[in-house]
């Protein structure tokens, strides 16, 4: 193998190891290191009536970023309000999934229409979470998901505490 290709390969393999370490570092810096334990089993997803995927909150704390998109597949919201919150929020309408800004531009919905969400930012999902703790009850490793939800509520955009 040529020298340069060996170096590229070695560098990219080192990147992979660094990537794993970086994830661990971000989880610690978010203040929720236990989020690394999450099984990604989606047991929590099956019990949320609003259709929030609570594993998304764990993912947000692993990467220490409240702006990642998580599934919220059964929350009704007015289109104008959704656009004000986040123009890139994904909604479901007429069997299509598209961003709210696109839906308003196309005329698929009006500002007074009620839409069902599909994906939204983790901090917005945390704000609509009712904190019923059904997700915590079914978690196989008993993660304190509500601690993460409370931390994400009203969080300003951008990573970090």
């Amino acid at each position: 193998m040529k020298d340069i290709i060996k170096k590229i390969n070695a560098a990219l393999f080192a990147f992979i190891v660094f990537y794993l370490g970086f994830i661990g570092f971000r989880a610690f810096s978010s203040g929720y290191p236990f989020s690394l334990i999450c099984y990604n089993c989606k047991s929590c997803d099956s019990v949320c009536v609003i259709g929030i995927d609570p594993q998304g909150f764990m993912a947000a704390s692993i990467v220490d970023d409240p702006d990642i998109y998580v599934y919220v597949t059964n929350y009704r919201i007015y289109a104008g309000e959704a656009e004000k919150l986040d123009p890139d929020m994904i909604i479901q309408t007429h069997d299509r999934k598209l961003s709210i800004s696109k839906a308003l531009r196309d005329g698929t919905v009006t500002r007074d229409s009620e839409v069902i969400t599909y994906k939204m930012k983790a901090r917005h999902a945390a704000n609509i979470c009712i904190e019923c703790a059904a997700c915590e009850r079914v978690c196989p490793v008993k993660l304190p998901i509500l601690d993460v939800v409370k931390g994400l509520k009203n969080k300003e955009s951008g990573a970090g505490k």
């Binding site: 994830i23 999450c38 990604n40 089993c41 947000a60 220490d64 890139d88």
Partner: peptide, 18 residues
């Protein structure tokens, strides 16, 4: 397109790796 590197990291399942 807008890129959010965090969204890429959320695609990594730590459980089977660990």
């Amino acid at each position: 397109e807008k890129i959010n590197p965090s969204q890429i990291i959320t695609g990594t399942f730590l459980h089977p790796i660990t």
